[in-house]
Amino acid sequence: DVEPGKFYKGVVTRIEKYGASINLNEQVRGLLRPRDMISLRLENLNVGDEIIVQAIDVRPEKREIDFKYIP
């Protein structure tokens, strides 16, 4: 289970102007929005990149997770 405040290694699977889709595994994925990137710009991400993200909002009833990137 993903817990708010914990850090996870994820893989960038899609990049859109509203954010990047991050997969932690086949069943768990979430969104990294541009506003939640401290020192990383969306255009510097590539599909397949592995990054460390922090879960900031977990809504299991909607199967949604928001991530934050902290270098």
Rank of each mutant, 00 (worst) to 15 (best):
V53N: 00
T13I: 09
V2N: 02
G30Y: 04
I52T: 10
N23I: 12
E43C: 13
Q27D: 12
D66N: 11
V58Y: 10
I52F: 09
P4W: 07
V28C: 10
R35K: 13
S21I: 15
L31P: 02
A55G: 01
L24W: 04
K17P: 15
D36N: 15
E43W: 11
E50H: 14
E26D: 14
Q27L: 13
L40W: 04
A55C: 14
F7D: 01
F67L: 09
L24D: 00
L24K: 00
F7M: 06
G48T: 01
R63Y: 12
R14F: 09
I52N: 04
N25W: 11
K6L: 08
S21D: 09
I51K: 00
D36V: 05
P4I: 15
P4F: 09
L45G: 00
D49T: 05
I15D: 00
F7W: 11
P4G: 05
N44I: 05
D1V: 14
I51V: 06
V28R: 04
R41V: 11
I38Y: 10
N44K: 06
D1F: 14
A20T: 03
I22C: 04
D66T: 12
V12I: 13
V53F: 04
L42Q: 02
N25Y: 08
V58N: 07
R35W: 07
F7T: 04
P4Y: 08
V12T: 01
V2Y: 09
G30S: 02
D66C: 09
K68R: 15
K62G: 08
D49E: 06
I70V: 14
V28Y: 11
R14L: 09
R63N: 15
K62S: 13
T13D: 05
E50Y: 14
I51Y: 01
N25Q: 05
I22F: 05
E3Q: 14
I65H: 04
N46W: 09
V11Y: 12
R35I: 08
R59C: 07
V58T: 07
D66K: 12
N44P: 02
I52R: 06
G48M: 03
K17A: 14
F7K: 04
K6D: 02
K17G: 09
N25F: 09
V12G: 00
E43L: 07
Y69D: 03
L31I: 13
A20R: 01
K6P: 01
G5M: 07
I52L: 10
I56T: 07
R59G: 06
I51T: 00
P60A: 11
E3M: 14
T13C: 09
A55L: 07
P71Y: 07
N25C: 10
L24H: 01
P71K: 08
E43A: 11
R41P: 05
G10S: 02
E3V: 15
K9F: 08
K62R: 12
E61I: 07
V28I: 14
V11W: 12
Q27G: 13
S21N: 08
Y18R: 12
P71C: 15
F67C: 05
G10R: 00
R33D: 03
N23R: 15
T13K: 04
L42D: 01
N46A: 14
A20E: 01
R41H: 10
K6I: 07
Y18W: 15
E3G: 04
D57V: 13
G5F: 08
R63T: 08
R41S: 12
I65R: 02
R63C: 13
L40E: 04
N25T: 12
I15W: 03
R41Y: 09
E16N: 15
K62H: 10
V12P: 01
R35Y: 07
V53P: 00
N23C: 15
S21V: 15
V11C: 08
D36Y: 09
F67E: 03
R33L: 05
V53W: 02
P60E: 08
P60M: 10
D66M: 13
K62F: 11
I38F: 09
A20N: 01
E26M: 12
G19W: 13
I51W: 01
R33T: 03
L42T: 03
F67R: 03
E64R: 10
N44E: 15
V58Q: 03
Y18C: 11
L45T: 01
I15Y: 00
A20Y: 08
R29N: 10
K62A: 12
Y69C: 06
K68C: 10
P71T: 07
Y69Q: 07
Q54R: 06
V47Y: 03
I70S: 09
I65G: 03
Y18A: 10
E61H: 11
I38M: 11
N23D: 12
S39L: 12
K62W: 08
V58M: 06
M37R: 01
F67H: 03
E64M: 11
R29A: 14
E64I: 12
K17S: 14
D49G: 02
D57W: 11
N25K: 05
I52Q: 03
K9S: 06
L40G: 06
V2D: 02
L45K: 01
I22K: 01
P60W: 12
R33P: 02
F7I: 06
L31D: 02
K9T: 08
R29V: 14
G10V: 08
G48A: 01
I56G: 06
I51N: 00
N46Q: 14
L45F: 04
M37A: 06
T13R: 04
K62V: 12
N25L: 06
G5H: 05
Q27P: 04
I70E: 09
K9Y: 08
Q54N: 01
P60Q: 10
R29Y: 12
A20M: 05
Y8H: 00
D57M: 14
V11R: 11
I70F: 11
G5A: 04
V28T: 12
P71L: 07
P34R: 10
V58R: 04
R35L: 06
R41A: 11
I52E: 05
G30D: 02
K62Q: 12
Q27E: 12
K17M: 11
A55S: 03
E16L: 13
R33N: 03
P60T: 10
M37V: 05
P34K: 09
R33S: 10
R33M: 04
D57G: 15
V12F: 02
I51Q: 00
D1H: 14
Q27F: 15
R33H: 06
E43N: 08
V11A: 01
G5I: 02
Y18D: 12
P4H: 06
R59N: 09
M37F: 05
S21R: 14
P60K: 11
F67A: 02
M37W: 04
I70D: 13
E43D: 11
I38Q: 11
L32W: 03
R59T: 06
P71A: 11
L32R: 01
M37S: 04
R33F: 04
L45P: 00
L24E: 01
Y8M: 01
Y69P: 03
D49W: 07
I38S: 09
M37L: 06
E43Q: 09
G30L: 08
V28L: 13
Q54C: 12
G19A: 09
Q27V: 13
K6G: 07
R35D: 08
Q54Y: 13
R41I: 10
V2C: 07
P60H: 10
D36G: 05
V47I: 13
N46V: 11
G48Q: 01
P34Y: 08
V11S: 03
E26Q: 12
E26W: 12
K68Y: 07
K6E: 06
K9V: 11
Q27M: 13
L24R: 00
E3H: 12
I15E: 00
K9E: 02
I22V: 09
E61N: 12
I70M: 11
E50T: 14
G10E: 01
G5Q: 04
I15T: 03
N46Y: 09
N46L: 11
R59K: 08
V2E: 08
K68N: 04
